[in-house]
Design a protein around this nucleic acid. Structure first.
Length: 331
DNA sequence: AAGTTGACCAACCGCCCCAAT
DNA sequence: AATTGGGGCGGTTGGTCAACT
């Protein structure tokens, strides 16, 4: 037996936006009597509305403890983290955000956060980097429109006149994603990595410039010296899930810190929240300083391991990764 | 200036859960 | 144990407004 409609079909109950008068009636009634039975409330309150409509209006708009206005960054982070744990359980998420309704959070997710994550190449459902490369089409368009790739790549000033293509830029994004993962809790000054001073060479440039790279301090990356001239584009990089967008590459910034990056390019499940939950916290035992891939969160770590196993490029990236991990001062 | 498009969000719809009977 | 129905929930719709053509 199906559930009957909450309002008698013969009733000519009003639908659509509530008027201030109706709001006042509802508030007056609930203020005096409480809402009691929602089905009987409309008649008692003198409203020509469905009980369900009254309940919705009350819980989503008229309640005195409703917090209105824009979501703060902290709230946004919480929503993302909670969503990674709870999925589309909007009411459960709302329970962690005093004054916010499930409807409001759901709308905010669908109109803001979802798009943001997609732009970043992150699947809003799984909170993992997207495994498809369809979004790279946007990049090819972007590149097509760009008269000067060198200008686009300004954060990494391209003195070598690199011939970056979509694939390489995507790979760069993968690497940045990885660095953000490594940089779970702290601020990475990418310039430390990019400025060559610490590493002795710029892995990003080296990565992009697949033909040759000058390594200033061979002792840092002996394998890099010998192997990096090889074409690593054939490596397992394409297996690493991830995405690309211009912002994520820092096209608009001449100096990037991950703090700045996280503002626009947060890896959502990785940020800490007051609930202390995230994909990382929940499923992995890694921390920045002593990170190990004990229980990697697939697919990115699986792919990363595959990359490291790749004979052609594995050794160099192993070295880079190990170096980065062993130098927490970089972060 | 008029028409179109897209973003935003309040409100609705229909299904599910679970307590009461 | 089965049925009923109130309340809750997530998905979707449609109205409004601003930006764009």
């Amino acid at each position: 037996m199906g559930r009957p409609p909450c309002c008698d079909e013969n009733d000519t109950v009003k639908k659509g936006p509530w008027t201030p008068e109706e709001d006042q009636k509802l508030m007056d009634y609930i203020g005096k009597h409480g809402h009691g039975n929602w089905r009987t409330l409309p008649k008692l309150a003198g409203l020509n509305r469905c009980g369900k409509s009254c309940r919705l209006r009350w819980t989503n708009y008229l309640r005195s403890d409703i917090k209105r206005g824009k979501f703060t960054e902290e709230e946004e982070r919480m929503i993302i983290n909670l969503h990674s744990d709870l999925g589309n359980k909007w009411s459960k998420i709302a329970a962690h955000l005093p004054g916010r309704t499930d409807n409001e959070i759901k709308n905010f997710w669908n109109t803001h956060i979802r798009k943001k994550l997609l732009q970043m190449g992150i699947d809003p459902e799984t909170h993992k980097p997207r495994t498809d490369y369809n979004h790279l089409l946007n990049l090819s368009q972007l590149l097509g429109m760009s008269a000067s790739l060198g200008n686009l790549m300004s954060p990494w000033r391209n003195p070598l006149g690199l011939q970056a293509d979509v694939t390489h830029l995507a790979k760069l994004q993968q690497l940045q994603n990885l660095l953000q993962i490594l940089n779970n809790n702290s601020v990475v000054n990418m310039n430390n990595l990019l400025g060559n001073k610490t590493l002795g060479f710029n892995p990003f440039e080296a990565f992009l410039n697949k033909s040759s790279t000058t390594i200033q301090d061979p002792s840092l990356f002996p394998q890099a010296q010998s192997n990096f001239s090889q074409d690593i584009s054939k490596s397992s990089w394409t297996d690493i899930a991830g995405g690309f967008n211009a912002e994520a590459l820092g096209f608009n910034n001449s100096s990037i810190t991950s703090h700045e990056t996280q503002k626009e390019n947060t890896l959502p499940a990785l940020v800490s929240s007051s609930t202390g939950t995230s994909i990382f916290n929940q499923k992995d035992t890694c921390n920045t300083a002593q990170m190990s891939f004990q229980s990697p969160s697939p697919p990115i770590f699986d792919a990363w391991e595959k990359l490291l196993d790749d004979e052609e490029s594995g050794s160099i990236w192993k070295e880079i990764l190990e170096y980065v991990l062993s130098n927490s001062s970089l972060f």
